[in-house]
């Protein structure tokens, strides 16, 4: 009699943490495609174990209700990536579910990481033109990332995540940190490493934060 009682006691001690970890992300089985923790690796969806560092909560909630294509060629670690297979479309969720999922995702952060706040004051027209030049020619970012040209038209390659809505999607301080130390987030990216000075990183980030879907010229982009 004493032995079963011991196991029940152990079970009662261990059960609450297990129940606490089960949340909206587990309910929706997000972990079957996305990496949600520090150790596990998944190939079919982007890593989300640093979602709270990377995304803006408002965008995340909207995305989960109305998913948009961010990686037109699919996830770079997926087997069909180089064949241009974009993978399965992301499921959409009702507002309440999206809100709960967003809250959970914003709680996923790299442990011990403190990001320096970056001011995202608008760039002057001249500085924006200068950084746009660097974005396209000096660092060749446009070869892999879609962005908006000065007329609001979509331009650029598709192997990297689209940046046409980066200003609504990403946190500025994360962008700077990614440019500086991508190895914090991924062991191997398909993006080249750059040695940018701090001022250029910040200006680059300020430029990216000006890229917003609402600035897209839909007529010029061929949209309706």
């Amino acid at each position: 009699m004493k032995i079963p009682a011991f196991f029940i006691l152990i079970g009662l001690v261990l059960l609450p943490p297990v129940l606490a970890s089960a949340g909206p992300l587990q309910d929706k089985d997000c972990g079957s495609c996305h990496r949600l923790g520090d150790s596990e690796k998944k190939n079919s969806g982007p890593d989300l174990h640093y979602a709270g560092n990377k995304f803006q909560a408002k965008w995340l909630k909207q995305f989960l209700q109305n998913p948009e294509v961010i990686r037109p060629a699919g996830v770079s670690t997926a087997p069909g990536f180089l064949q241009g297979s974009s993978g399965n479309p992301h499921p959409s969720f009702a507002e309440k579910e999206a809100s709960a999922l967003s809250d959970s995702l914003m709680g996923l952060k790299v442990s011990g990481l403190t990001l320096e706040p970056v001011t995202t004051e608008p760039l002057s027209k001249g500085k924006r033109a200068k950084i746009k030049y660097q974005f396209e020619r000096t660092f060749s970012c446009i070869s892999c990332h879609q962005s908006l040209n000065l007329a609001g038209k979509v331009r650029g390659g598709i192997s990297g995540p689209s940046l046409i809505n980066a200003g609504n999607r990403l946190q500025a301080d994360w962008v700077v940190n990614w440019l500086n130390t991508p190895e914090v987030y991924t062991s191997k990216s398909r993006m080249p490493r750059y040695k940018m000075d701090s001022a250029t990183q910040i200006q680059f980030t300020q430029f990216l934060m000006t890229l917003k879907k609402e600035n897209m010229n839909r007529r010029a982009a061929g949209g309706k």
Binding site: A73, L82, Q83, S143, C144, G157, I158, S159, R190
Partner: peptide
């Protein structure tokens, strides 16, 4: 291969 293609034929996804 992102740009130059899997076989190097210059026909990558970008």
């Amino acid at each position: 291969a992102q740009c130059h293609g899997i076989e190097g034929k210059g026909n990558g996804i970008n």
